[in-house]
Simulated assay, not measured.
Amino acid sequence: MRHWSKFSRSAKIKTAGYLISVVSVVLLAIVSWKNAQKDPVLAVCLFGGAMTSMLGMGLRWWSYEIEEGEKK
Rank of each mutant, 00 (worst) to 15 (best):
S53W: 10
R60W: 14
A11E: 14
I30M: 09
S10G: 15
G48K: 12
E65W: 08
K6A: 00
K6V: 04
T15W: 13
H3A: 08
S10V: 14
L27I: 06
V44N: 01
K34G: 06
V26Y: 08
M51A: 15
G48R: 15
Q37F: 01
V26I: 10
S10A: 14
E67I: 08
V25Y: 03
F47T: 00
K38V: 03
V44E: 02
A11F: 09
S10Q: 15
T52L: 07
V22M: 13
A29M: 02
K71N: 05
S8C: 00
V22D: 02
E70S: 02
E68K: 07
V44T: 00
S5K: 03
M54Q: 06
E68D: 05
L46V: 04
R9N: 10
W33F: 09
L27N: 03
E67C: 02
V22Q: 05
S5T: 02
W4F: 12
G56E: 10
F47S: 07
G56D: 10
G17L: 01
V41I: 10
K12M: 12
K14S: 08
I20Q: 06
G49M: 04
M54S: 04
E65R: 11
G17T: 04
S63C: 08
S63G: 12
V22Y: 05
E67K: 14
W62H: 12
R9T: 02
D39M: 00
K12C: 06
S24C: 09
R60S: 14
W61G: 00
S10W: 12
L46D: 02
K71S: 11
W4L: 09
M51L: 15
V23Q: 02
E67G: 11
R2F: 09
L42S: 04
I66Q: 05
W62P: 13
S8E: 00
S10M: 08
R2S: 09
S53F: 04
T15K: 08
R9D: 14
S5I: 00
V41L: 14
K14N: 11
W61C: 00
L19S: 15
V31C: 01
G49H: 13
K38F: 07
L19G: 15
K12Y: 00
Y18S: 06
E67R: 13
C45T: 06
C45L: 14
G49I: 04
V44Q: 03
G58D: 02
Q37H: 05
R9A: 09
T52R: 08
K72G: 13
